[in-house]
């Protein structure tokens, strides 16, 4: 059949329906998030680790404070902490939460590329960035919410244990609330960095290794390398911003609170923006 007869044929015209608005893409990303068993397992294990470490830490802290009654060194250590050991107990598993949820951030994006799902995702959302931002929202909000809830439950579990050692933990105190919110925000930030790494590297193992390198290897390496430069540089690593952000008083060899907030913000914004630029440009 020739082109002219083809054009003369009844031309199929679809009633134009709704397209990928940000809310719809967000809904789609949330469906993708909740329909993977591996994601749910990672979330559950984070909660278990957070609560478990909270309970362990409550027990350890109790033992330590009892020792302090007869040990002047331990007493001095407590005094150096502002006298309140218990307030840090609910968030003692935070290093593991950041590792697991940061890895989850990597995986949610890298798996798009390793499984080929990205072709479906970006065929549905060819502008790409709405899908990236929707996934970022899902990753950050879930990391924040899970950390906050786990921290609170860890606190509830810790209170009776600490009580045995005559230590008081008030989950409603301003420092407790600050610890919960700042740590949850911090884990959300780590998850965002993970997702940016997953987008840039597109490989699960490579992304997780980079994340571990940044948060766990670099601080130790920087400590081992002699020289003032590395002592100074160490403060600017993203994993070392959480101490000044949650401390009651300024801790030696760390940034000021406002500096720490800016540095952590930069550690999120720079890789995320880079990931967005490259995601838009690169072939899927």
């Amino acid at each position: 059949m020739s082109a002219t007869t083809t054009l003369d044929r009844r031309s199929f015209r679809n009633a134009v329906g709704p397209g990928p608005s940000f809310f719809r893409v967000l809904n789609s990303e949330f469906i993708k998030f909740r329909t993977l068993m591996s994601t749910l397992i990672l979330l559950a294990s984070t909660a278990v680790v957070m609560v478990g470490f909270g309970a362990l830490s409550a027990w350890g802290t109790g033992q330590f404070s009892e020792a302090a009654l007869s040990d002047p060194e331990a007493a001095a250590a407590i005094a150096a902490q502002g006298g309140d050991l218990a307030v840090g107990v609910p968030t003692s598993g935070i290093a593991f939460a950041q590792l697991i949820l940061g890895s989850l951030g990597v995986l949610l994006m890298s798996s798009e590329f390793t499984t080929g799902m990205a072709r479906s995702t970006f065929a549905a959302v060819p502008k790409r960035l709405p899908a990236f931002l929707a996934k970022l929202v899902v990753v950050m909000v879930s990391a924040f919410a899970l950390t906050a809830v786990s921290t609170y439950i860890a606190g509830l579990v810790s209170v009776p244990i600490l009580d045995n050692y005559k230590l008081a933990l008030d989950l409603g105190s301003s420092q407790s609330i600050k610890m919960l919110l700042v740590n949850s925000l911090y884990v959300a930030a780590v998850a965002a960095i993970g997702m940016a790494l997953g987008t840039l590297i597109r490989n699960s193992a490579g992304g997780i290794m980079s994340l571990v390198g940044l948060f766990f290897v670099a601080p130790i390496a920087f400590q081992l390398i002699p020289g003032d430069f590395f002592v100074e540089a160490r403060k600017y690593l993203p994993g070392n911003t959480i101490t000044p952000l949650t401390a009651v008083e300024h801790v030696k060899d760390t940034l000021e609170v406002w500096q720490a907030a800016l540095v952590l913000g930069a550690w999120v914004v720079v890789p995320v923006v880079l990931a967005m630029v490259l995601l838009k440009k690169r072939d899927v």
Partner: peptide, 23 residues
Amino acid sequence: DAKAVHASRTAYNHLLAMAATHS
């Protein structure tokens, strides 16, 4: 590509996630 799917998701959920982008 037949492999444009996350293999750990069910077929229904894959279609559900794609459909959600366009209501």
